Structure formats: C-alpha cells, structure tokens
Amino acid sequence: MSGNGNAAATAEENSPKMRVIRVGTRKSQLARIQTDSVVATLKASYPGLQFEIIAMSTTGDKILDTALSKIGEKSLFTKELEHALEKNEVDLVVHSLKDLPTVLPPGFTIGAICKRENPHDAVVFHPKFVGKTLETLPEKSVVGTSSLRRAAQLQRKFPHLEFRSIRGNLNTRLRKLDEQQEFSAIILATAGLQRMGWHNRVGQILHPEECMYAVGQGALGVEVRAKDQDILDLVGVLHDPETLLRCIAERAFLRHLEGGCSVPVAVHTAMKDGQLYLTGGVWSLDGSDSIQETMQATIHVPAQHEDGPEDDPQLVGITARNIPRGPQLAAQNLGISLANLLLSKGAKNILDVARQLNDAH
C-alpha cells in the first residue's frame, strides 16, 4: 500500500501541473516587456503551470559599433537563445518575429505568432524639431536608422535628408537623439515604442507609400524545439490566425527572394473581405531603383483552434497545428507568387547589386 502511495506522490510531482516552463529572452527592456506579455497570456491559459524567465545577451546586443547589415552573420539576435533551447536550458524563446530568419536551424520551429501590433515605422524627432515631419525637416538634416530597408525607401522619398546608421537598443538610440546634436530624427518601429509606453515620442507614423515595413514587423514569434510536442501544444494558444497568415505570406515572399538583413526588402499586408493583399518591394541601397507589386488571394481566416493538420510540417519556419492547413498554404503560395513576379521584373539584379555594395563598404 505504502509503495503505491509513493508512486502516486511521484506521479503528482512529475505531472504537468508541477512543471516549471523556462522562457528565454534577450536582456533589453523591450525584450523583457514583450516576454512578460507572452508569459502573462500563458499564465492565464495555464494557471497550474509556473513560468521562469531567463534573460541573456546576444551577438546583436554586444556589437554596437557596426551596422547590422555589415556584421555579416545571420541570427544576430537569436543564436545564443537557440543555443540555450538546444541544450534544454529553456523550453521556449520569445523573439520579435522580424529577427527570426525565414529558414531556422534544424530542430527549431516557430510554435506561435502572437497578435500583431502596429507594424509601421515611426519617426521620433529631436526636441528642437518636435512638430515637424520628415518632409518639413531642414535641408541636409541627419536621420538615424539601423535599417537598409528604411534608408533606401526614405532616401527616395525625401532626397533633402541624409540617413546615417544608429545602433543600440531603444533606450540607447533615444538617448543619442536627445543628448547629442548629430541626429534631427530617428526611425523606429511603432510597436516597440508603444510597448515601452513611449507613445508621446511618436512624431509621425510612416504610411506604406512612404515606407513599407519589415517582414514580420510588429509581431512576436515564440520559438521552440520542433519535436517538443508538449510545448508546441502549450504555445499553440498564442497563435493569432490573421497575423499568422499575413506573416506566412510575408516570410514566403522574403524567403523566395532570398532577402535578408543586408538587402532592402519591404512588405505591406492587409486582410479585407476574405482577401489577403500582399505588397512587396525591393530597392537599391540608395533607393534610386525599385520594383513594387501587389497581389491578392482569397483566404478564409479560420477561428482559433479549428482542428489543424496533425502532421505539422513547417511552413517558412512556422508550425501551427491548430490552424487549418489550406489557408496557410494559400498564404505561402501568395508570397511565392509575388516573389516570382518581382524576380521576373529584375528584382534579383537589384538585390545582387545591393548585396555587393553593402559587402564592399
């Protein structure tokens, strides 16, 4: 009898209710805020589980004197976190989706994509230029951005401005803007500013005609071990179906173009009346040469937790077992079709030249 009692006690200790789920994140304040929001949602869904947040620095956090596009290494903000995932030191990792490459290392998958916040870019102005827009900034004003995508589009749109690289986390960039006289304004992701509670610093939100956004911008991705079915089931509740389908289309477009950090590629997606609209573009580094096109596809946005595919093969690095396969494939095909259209119009040449120029500098 006593033996059975011990077995029952052991089973209770090993039951999922007692389990601590370890969540990996970057150390920056924004990353911690984003991770806290994901953990809060998981806690609400699984009140019996405990969650421990483990923060670590990544290569991208450490190399702050070089433009991201020049470092010449993929997975700048993800490699150390993936290493911890691989060694079973954490069970899942919360990322900004735009930091996750469209091809993940073997053994990993994006197990959830959370509801997207505003994906557009924002302009934050130096205190002396508050009330201005990019259009009304004085001639030769210097605007800071760490992104080739932003610089290429904005140089084309605002030729009277000069664009220079600015690195560091959000706090560091804002301090550089406010305390030094080098920059009249800087460009940042609206979602990051909003998550930090800095709505009052948003001086201008850039519309798609001015600057399309990065693939996955404004959404959070939760990376897990691809074979860890328990954790895949656990994080599945975080999937937002519309965000998922938009981001599958965007990531398929980028992957098929073979774009990345070192080339200016941008997108804009919208879901309306059962249609998914995808606009994508590529630019030369100075913005003088560009190709942009829009395509659409009829896609039914499923309700969360309709029964999805059981075999769960990944699409552009994403596993969404609780979302039907048909809409996911339709979104992926839309991204591939748009990429093929741009490639047929000469996108590869623009991107190759951009890559060579970026590598040469």
Score class of each variant (00 low, 15 high):
Lys87Thr: 12
Gln217Cys: 03
Arg195Leu: 11
Pro324Glu: 03
Arg22Ser: 12
Ser146Val: 08
Ser96Val: 01
Gly197Gln: 01
Lys115Glu: 10
Trp283Gln: 11
Thr109Ile: 07
His160Asn: 12
Leu245Gln: 09
Pro324Thr: 14
Gln332Cys: 01
Glu210Asn: 13
Leu177Gly: 01
Glu293Asn: 08
Ser69Gly: 10
Leu137Ala: 06
Leu148Ile: 13
Ile186Glu: 15
Glu52Lys: 05
Ile248Thr: 05
His256Cys: 12
Phe51Tyr: 08
Cys247Glu: 04
Phe253Val: 05
Arg321Leu: 11
Gln296Asp: 04
Gly317Ala: 01
Val301Arg: 09
Leu278Gln: 15
Glu223Leu: 10
Gln153Tyr: 12
Pro106Arg: 12
Pro327Arg: 01
Arg32Asn: 13
Leu49Met: 11
Gly144Asp: 04
Phe125Asn: 08
Ala270Thr: 07
Met196Ile: 13
Thr102Trp: 01
Glu293Ala: 11
Val103Tyr: 01
Lys128Cys: 09
Gly218Ala: 05
Val90Ser: 07
Asp91Met: 03
Gly168Glu: 01
Ala214Cys: 10
His300Gly: 13
Val222Asp: 01
Arg175Trp: 11
Arg150Phe: 01
Ala55Gly: 08
Ala339Pro: 01
Ser165Asp: 01
Gly107Val: 09
Ile299Asn: 08
Met56Arg: 08
Val39Cys: 10
Gln180Lys: 13
Glu86Asp: 12
Leu329Val: 15
Asp228Ala: 12
Ser57Met: 01
Phe77Glu: 01
Glu258Gly: 15
Val130Thr: 09
Glu162Gly: 09
Ser28Arg: 01
Gln34Ile: 06
Phe108Tyr: 13
His199Ile: 12
Gly60Trp: 07
Gln296Thr: 05
Gln229Phe: 13
Pro208Ile: 13
Glu135His: 04
Trp283Pro: 09
Ile291Leu: 11
Leu245Gly: 04
Cys114Tyr: 06
Leu177Lys: 01
Arg355Ser: 15
Gly60Gln: 07
Glu117Trp: 11
Thr58Leu: 05
Gln181Val: 06
Leu341His: 06
Ala219Thr: 06
Leu342Cys: 05
Arg32Thr: 07
Phe51Val: 14
Pro106Phe: 13
Arg116Trp: 04
Arg149Gly: 01
Val123Ile: 13
Leu92Tyr: 01
Ser75Leu: 11
Asn322Glu: 13
Ala122Lys: 04
Pro264Leu: 05
His207Pro: 11
Asn340Ser: 09
Leu342Pro: 01
Leu30Asp: 01
Val316Leu: 13
Arg26Gly: 01
Ile187Thr: 05
Ser337Leu: 15
Thr133Gln: 06
Val224Gly: 05
Cys261Val: 01
Leu232His: 07
Leu206Gly: 06
Lys348Gly: 13
Leu357Phe: 14
Thr279Trp: 05
Asn171Gly: 11
Gly274Trp: 10
Ser28Tyr: 01
Pro324Met: 03
His256Pro: 05
Gly281Ser: 15
Lys227Trp: 06
Phe129His: 11
Asp65Tyr: 10
